[in-house]
Amino acid sequence: MHVTAIISTKGGVGKTTTAANIGGLAADAGLRVLLLDLDVQPTLSSYYTLPVRAPAGCYELLAYNECRPSQLICKTAIRGLDLVVSNDAQGQLNTLLLHAPDGRLRLRNLLPLFRPHYDLLLIDTQGARSVLLEMATLAADQLLSPVTPEVLAARELRRGTIQLLKDLAPYSHLGIVPPPMQLLINRVHPVSSNARAVQGALRQVLAGEPGISVLDTSVPAIEAYPRAATAALPVHREEYRRPSGRQAPAALDTMRALASELYPQWRDRFALVNGRLTDATC
């Protein structure tokens, strides 16, 4: 099972939308996918319709080490895409984990529960520095950090998310090294060159930062993404063909390119995903 944590210390950069859409595409490609919602604002938990809803969620998983799938795993309307909901509305987990001896390592220690059942685990996180965010970082094989094409967002990335990775470096003494992080330029206006400038600036700024890279794929700011969320669909099903006269590629093409860049081992599977045919697989 490959574990990707979608992280940023800045809110509103598109972590939840990214997690939902990568998960939906991967499930349509035939992978067994689990979404874990660790955001106290449970947007990912309500993105997809849940025909089968489990009685527990991330609170019971992390506070009580609940390990029974029947208690934790919700089934979404997308075949092959499951979810552990966020149910920590009071934000108690951060306090609990802060004072627990294994707090930042708890999720990492619980992952063997899921490994036999899933190919891909996607963790959505809160847009602020927290113990939960640090825990997700230390549990992951790979970090994905969306960044909006703005200079202030790039500065916050360095102050917040990159500093978090540096602060976790001492865990290397336990044999736990923070995983590589890839940056995704998100919500790019199709007619703007600002994204290219920010992309180039990020590459220059991060040239001396080991383990951090900028993805070639960027996500355009198009209406298909909020439209898909409203319809409770992965965006590649909502827009599988580029509208006439628009420069930005179809959402299906963007998501296939993004997934292939993140997970080259499954590139052939992603290439076969066709939004026009996936309704039959619901």
Rank of each mutant, 00 (worst) to 15 (best):
L183F: 09
Q182T: 02
P180R: 14
A197Q: 12
Q204V: 15
G200Q: 14
S145M: 13
A221F: 05
A195F: 05
Y225R: 04
A221H: 04
V188C: 14
I185R: 02
V214L: 09
V198G: 01
I176K: 02
E134C: 06
V205C: 10
T217E: 06
H173E: 12
A139R: 06
R203Q: 14
L157D: 06
I176Q: 01
L183A: 11
P210S: 15
L144K: 11
A224P: 00
L157N: 04
V191E: 12
L164I: 13
S192F: 09
R241F: 01
A153D: 13
P179T: 05
P234K: 15
N194Q: 15
R227I: 01
M181Q: 12
V188G: 00
I176A: 04
G160W: 06
L143T: 13
Y225V: 14
P149Q: 15
L202N: 11
Y225E: 01
L174T: 02
Q199T: 14
I162G: 01
T230R: 03
I176L: 08
Q182R: 13
P243S: 01
M181I: 15
Q182H: 07
P190E: 15
A224Q: 04
T230Q: 03
D167Q: 13
R241S: 00
S172C: 03
V147S: 08
N186C: 12
S145N: 12
P170Q: 14
L206P: 00
G211C: 07
T161V: 05
V219A: 04
A197F: 12
P234E: 15
D167G: 03
H189W: 07
S145R: 11
L202T: 13
